[in-house]
Amino acid sequence: MKISACMKRKVISIPAHATLREAAARLVAHHIGMLPVVDEAMHPVGVVALKDLLNLSMPDFVRLVEHLDFVHEFGAVESFIPDAATLARPVKDYMRPVTTVKEECGLLRAFAIMLKHDLHDLPVVDEQGRLTGIASRVDIGTAILATWSHG
């Protein structure tokens, strides 16, 4: 089975010049965890992930201490919101490189790529490299599991 059979064809994406604030709003509006960043021709140029945005409001110590089970309360940093200047930055400053697969990619290969790159959503492109779909771990995983019942 190909990934094109289980992917979502209505992809929510964002242009590279959009701001972080817009990216955050789009993630919230669609209740999703990742946005492919695309150019005018719909070629994916990067991704903005939920965790990268959340990192902006993570306290500094989270990066510095090895474990923090002993911190029962985050106190003053619990409700930390990044400042307006940061939120006005374009997503291209914060996006990470995108990993894509072609529409005819096999399901198991797609899932393995997600595991190796620690991805939760995998953008799919056509022969011309244009974004045509996106598949989550659950989309791909359940499609694979569904084949087991035929076995």
């Binding site: 500094d60 510095l64 911190v71 003053a76 940093v77």
Partner: peptide, 13 residues
């Protein structure tokens, strides 16, 4: 020092 940063951030200073 990292614990110091932690304490200060939690306190909000």
């Amino acid at each position: 020092a990292p614990i110091t940063i932690l304490i200060c951030e939690v306190l909000g200073i």
